Amino acid sequence: MDWDDMRIFLAVARADSLSAAGRRLGIDASTVGRRVARLEQALGTALFVKTPQGYALAQGGERLMPHAEAAETALAGAEDALSGPGDLGGQLRIGAPDGCANYLLPQVAARLCEAHRGLEIQIVALPRVFNLSKREADMAIAVSQPQAGRLVVQRLTDYSLHLAAHEDYLRAHPPIREREDLRGHRMIGYIPDLIFDRELDYLAETGMELAQLTSNSVSVQMQAVRAGAGLGIVHDFAIPFCPGVRRLLTEQISLSRSFWLIRHADDRRSQRMNRLADALAQGIRAEVARLQTQVAP
């Protein structure tokens, strides 16, 4: 049995489509389809069932899946054993909420790539929870701790959020000295029905009015605050990127959240993945601390 065919089988099983698997592997969808058909012929059983939603595992595919994943883990272990003690090469795909992906990961990734010239880092910034069982990413950063699944979960760091506005907005509107002064001010926040994690429901926790300007992206919200469109709950670590934005009512409105690093349970047997996780964790902690110290009290 050809491992390359097995690799393609795993990609289709995780992506549920030939085209998505091909994009991940860097080959065209028709080639993926031919390779799957060849593997099915060699094994004498159907591995997938075509459905309106994509490619679902057939009974043969269900039986093959754990063996294919075990082979993948064994191959990764062999690569670990043969790599040098200082080498951290290959590809690493990190899924993260867009606030972390925009304001933290670029600097952290740059330092990792500088230290390990053979390392290729892909940052997937999406406002949703990543599915590691389908290998949408090698690691994911989340704002809440998952409660189910075969996962390795590591707390990365705590971070702070505060009410903030741009100086241009504050000059053009009535002063804000107490909570009561917030009435009548335009609020910026999440689209309520697109909040994918309860930890992101900042306005509900602070008891403020519903937002009039909303987005499912925290980075878009931050840019709206920077543009003087209103008040918003923002990450302290994002403020240094937006000159003129300053915090308000810091004694009365202050939130704390945590970032969690999530990995597939099978990856804990990989020394490479363990070392990458440690390096990523150290980098995130250091970058949050560096940026938050730049914010004026």
Rank of each mutant, 00 (worst) to 15 (best):
H235F: 01
C113G: 13
A110H: 10
D5T: 10
A148E: 14
E40M: 08
Y190S: 11
Y169D: 02
G232L: 00
S219T: 14
G44A: 07
Y159V: 10
R183N: 10
Q145Y: 08
E114T: 14
T51F: 01
R246Q: 15
A165E: 03
A15K: 13
D158R: 15
Q271E: 15
E251W: 05
I123V: 15
D2A: 12
A29E: 13
A29P: 00
R24I: 01
A110L: 05
I253N: 08
P240Q: 07
V288T: 07
Q154A: 02
I121M: 01
V49I: 09
T214L: 00
G86C: 06
D181F: 08
Q107Y: 09
P66D: 12
L82Y: 14
A115F: 01
I191Q: 14
I191W: 05
V129W: 00
V245N: 08
P146T: 08
G118C: 08
G95H: 09
R263I: 02
G77R: 14
A125E: 05
L280P: 02
V295Y: 11
L18K: 04
V225N: 04
I94M: 07
L126W: 02
D28T: 02
E178I: 07
S215F: 00
D193Y: 09
A125D: 05
L82N: 14
G95E: 06
G89P: 03
T51K: 12
L200V: 02
L156T: 10
R177P: 03
L203A: 12
T73M: 13
D158E: 15
S254T: 13
L161P: 05
Q252G: 08
G232S: 04
L200D: 06
Q292C: 10
M208R: 09
